[in-house]
């Protein structure tokens, strides 16, 4: 390439490497801070009970084919009958999750803490990068990009002749932000990644609506087709044992 740029090694020593190191360290710090701030929610008796019922119904659904049809039917009746089945929620008794959240400020606090522990470091790092490291080429991406990416990647470099694969430090920051996720899941264990996805889930389904999940489980149990598996398992066991004996 004729138009190869020569970058100052000082950029490597004072921008590229420090930025990555800082991002890694902030990620680790965030992990431990969110671990410290995590408050164990005080269980509410009704909530726990409903949760357990849902789990039991789910277990029945998963293991449905391992019990005889009669047992399955009685169990299903126990869960889903319209008078006093465990999964049957009478109309009007269902609690409004929004109202429950307002009455319990701890829940809102908890979510806010979680979100803050994520947003604050990101904003701070972004501001830091923007303030100190803007206006020069910091790295070169080893693959070509189209001109469209110029405004995004070469922020602060107002030269249209520079190859687009030379990027400013802000792009390096974003690359770090997304690329380090894998590294974190390796060095911090999977807890970190799971935490993030859980946070997303919480944001999506705001508040846990017990009556709704009870209803869903009830429907799921109702439509299940029961087919007892064990008669065929005797043949399977026979074949396995025969193989062992041979």
């Amino acid at each position: 390439m004729a138009e190869d740029l020569v970058l100052d090694t000082a950029i490597r020593d004072w921008v590229l490497i420090p930025l990555s190191v800082v991002m890694v360290l902030i990620g680790i710090l965030r992990y431990f801070v969110s671990k410290l701030m995590r408050s164990s929610p005080t269980p509410d008796a009704k909530m726990v009970k409903e949760g357990q019922v849902v789990i039991r119904a789910r277990n029945l659904k998963v293991g449905a084919n391992f019990i005889p049809p009669r047992s399955f039917r009685t169990r299903r009746f126990y869960f889903t009958n319209e008078e006093n089945g465990l999964l049957h929620v009478p109309k009007g008794e269902a609690t409004n999750p929004q109202a429950a959240m307002f009455s319990d400020p701890n829940m809102a606090m908890d979510m806010m803490k979680k979100n803050l522990s994520m947003i604050i470091p990101q904003t701070l790092t972004f501001a830091w990068v923007n303030f100190f490291f803007s206006g020069f080429v910091a790295a070169k991406i080893p693959f070509p990009l189209t001109q469209r990416f110029r405004s995004m990647l070469q922020n602060g470099i107002d030269l249209s002749t520079v190859d687009v694969s030379y990027v400013s430090s802000r792009s390096w920051y974003f690359l770090n932000l997304f690329g380090l996720r894998g590294l974190f899941s390796l060095i911090l264990g999977d807890e970190n990644a799971i935490d993030d996805t859980q946070r997303m889930m919480q944001m999506g389904g705001f508040g846990f609506d017990a009556s709704k999940s009870l209803g869903a489980e009830k429907d799921g149990l109702d439509i299940i087709q029961h087919e007892w598996a064990l008669p065929r398992f005797e043949q399977r066991a026979e074949s396995v044992l025969r193989k062992l004996v041979k």
């Binding site: 970058l7 100052d8 090694t9 950029i11 490597r12 590229l16 990555s20 790295a139 070169k140 991406i141 080893p142 390096w172 690359l175 770090n176 997304f178 690329g179 380090l180 996720r181 894998g182 590294l183």
Partner: peptide
């Protein structure tokens, strides 16, 4: 795909350190 981002990051990093500066 999850690995792709990590790959690109470390690819860029090593490439820059070795070949650009």
């Amino acid at each position: 795909l999850g690995g792709l981002m990590s790959f690109v990051l470390f690819w860029t990093f090593a490439y820059d350190l070795v070949h650009i500066f």
